[in-house]
Design a protein around this nucleic acid. Structure first.
Lengths: 231, 231, 231, 231
DNA sequence: AATGAATGAGAGTTCATTCAT
DNA sequence: TATGAATGAACTCTCATTCAT
């Protein structure tokens, strides 16, 4: 029986040594750049292995310095995590402000264009590995960083409220129909979250097969329900 | 920067010692029962702390035996996790088969009833702590148990395919309208996943405030798009 | 690093599960037979893995009963070891009394015959796996069982003294020459010990190639030095 | 039956705590020196208790660092053992090259001198505790480190072949007699192995009483058989 | 700022031994 | 006697953190 070293490391996940010293040890980097490199490395390791299983050694190696050097920038593993959460959850990471709102005087054509702009932004973000990793980390380890999460929560609520208000105005001004979607903007975003979770759980080939169809159906949904009744 | 005591244990989760000897050490249980107890305990500990931070001691204590005794039933922490995933994902996790399908000859009334049945089942499950825990664990630690996940994937795909086929038949037979929802059943389920993720991330008071409104809007969405054109 | 299950078990030695339940669980065997079976199993496991690494489970399984059953016969792992040593070191395990001695009136012919008898016995024992295992165990773990070893020591000394006395008489009576070999009988046995140790350390093919040549040279040595000068 | 306390620890060997902090914790030693200290400590512990019963804590303590520090130098207990075997077996363990060979033009006097040199080296090594420990470890735990052993095997065979060839040349050039000893050099070394094994198994007082006599007889054996017939 | 040897508190795992059945 | 679930004390190994250099 081959000796499996420890059991707290997934057999499925490749060892971090496979990507040794991604950054080739640039000495004495400006502190700010180093912090960014470290947080990039931390995002990778945390989302790959989870907070508990990620090792400071691996984060340091991926950031191109030694474990000791890492501690010159962050006082603890938790500090790295908190800082990462802070950076991740800067406004509009999960949602940007391009979701269909209601600028004055909106022709149907421009509504379709706006929907397409929204979808383009949202589904493009799904292709960004960092976005998926971030969301995964948020879901998986969020409860570990309640304060950081609190910031995200507030942000998230504010954005949704703004969008909801915009919807309401759009309906009142007649550029959008009153529908389930304008009643709860959550419904507009739900398919994107679904897609993101699928990317976390299903294999890539299946997801990349489904994504375009999901996007098309999502577009159809929005264009079926958002435009005003007549025209 | 405040120094966190040990850093690898969540500050949010209370220590397991707070609930000592939950099961009062029933000696010599039939192996089958013990396994169930252990998996129950494991679900609790894993979802509370994550796989990495959960301790075999705590799982054992919660299951009412010693750590050594635990190892008589599962050869490793990973094995516990695998078995847990196996057991959890037997009944299709995210969906049951009550989502709106198309029995022959369906009046609009019965479609509404069917929609309500679907929503009732889905949103009731959201109130089940075990469901949320399980889904959280699936998302957070899924990649750790690729084989167990593979089973879930297959299940999930099969169910979706069946539902999609049902939708197609319903459209062809005229009991449902051709819409974004019938084109991609995913869109029907997306709001529920959104709700589940909100439950994981937002505080309970906010979520319980939103949930009924989300459910109402979800219902409205389905009833706006599913029924056939005429009526 | 692939996860190796435990580290205290040699990767080179096959797991004991490979030979599961060598004896097919005969229930309620006479105590004496069971003890013998257990000691056989223990000899195998101890010599294969060493005392420390041998497991009571494996010994029990090899003996055809459960761990609990084993403890009905021996109170502890040490007790098994002690009993094994006792049994192993019954007189003349390592040496028998056929080494060349001096019966009255010994022609040179019969000396050669006696040498051959001695060699036959000694080198035949080298082919006996149990002999090699026993000697290996004696060397490897002897210090663990000082009392058992004490018995062997006494035996060993007594036998050598007898042989030495026999040699002296043979020289005095003129049937053997006074030589290094008669001065120290140890020298007569040394090549056999060498062969045994080689069997423990070198690979079988090499040893089986060397053994006949060693035996021939050993024979030549004895016949060169033991017979009286003239004739 | 007297119950032995823990049973997996030899009653004969004193606990390592009796010699606490043998090395007074020199912090930050160069890695190379530390490795040597660790291997020294490992030789002691392994040979005292056997591989299985030796504890990493004790090895670390004896080497003057903490258990964790030990693992910075060797990845596992097995790795320590392998490295130890490697180091131990570099200089040919059992034989050096001073065994009687045949330099050109060798008078009988110088042959005797050469024999004495050989015996001096061999029996001096028997007084070296490290030699006995090493040999004991090789016999007792050799099968655990097949790769390390492979190196030793090759070495051992090479040395014997060279000696054998030297013997053949010595016989052909007439400086040695053709005898059992020149036919198989093993016979020359056998008494030394016997002495070593006796040191492992018999008590010191007995062995130190026998050793000089064995050495004398060994000398006599060589001088009786090696010199050429004439004189 | 950076390095990496060293620490030390666990955590996972093993296994001799016990004991209810 | 026999079974095998259960115990608990070790033991190996890990890793966040410290600190001499």
């Amino acid at each position: 029986m081959p000796k499996l070293p420890s059991s707290s490391r997934s057999a499925a996940a490749g060892p971090a040594q496979d990507v040794p010293g991604r950054t080739p040890r640039n000495r004495r980097l400006p502190a700010h750049e180093r912090r960014e490199q470290i947080l990039d490395a931390a995002l990778h390791e945390f989302s790959e292995r989870g907070f508990g299983a990620a090792r400071m050694d691996d984060i340091a190696a991926r950031a191109g310095l030694s474990k000791g050097g890492l501690y010159a920038h962050f006082g603890s593993k938790d500090a790295v995590f908190q800082a990462l959460m802070q950076r991740m959850l800067l406004p509009s990471l999960l949602f940007d402000d391009r979701s269909p709102q209601a600028p004055a005087r909106l022709s149907r054509t421009s509504l379709a264009a706006q929907v397409d702009g929204f979808l383009e932004g949202a589904y493009a973000r799904l292709e960004d590995d960092r976005f998926i990793r971030t969301l995964h980390l948020l879901i998986a380890e969020g409860p570990r960083a309640p304060e950081a999460i609190a910031g995200w929560r507030a942000d998230h609520l504010r954005l949704l409220h703004e969008q909801q208000a915009g919807m309401r105005r759009a309906v009142e001004s007649g550029v959008m129909r009153d529908s389930a979607l304008t009643e709860m903007v959550h419904l507009i975003h739900a398919p994107i979250l679904l897609a993101a979770v699928l990317k976390m759980l299903q294999d890539d080939t299946h997801v990349s097969g489904i994504l375009p169809r999901l996007r098309a159906a999502h577009r159809r949904l929005l264009l079926e329900l958002l435009p005003p009744e007549s025209g």
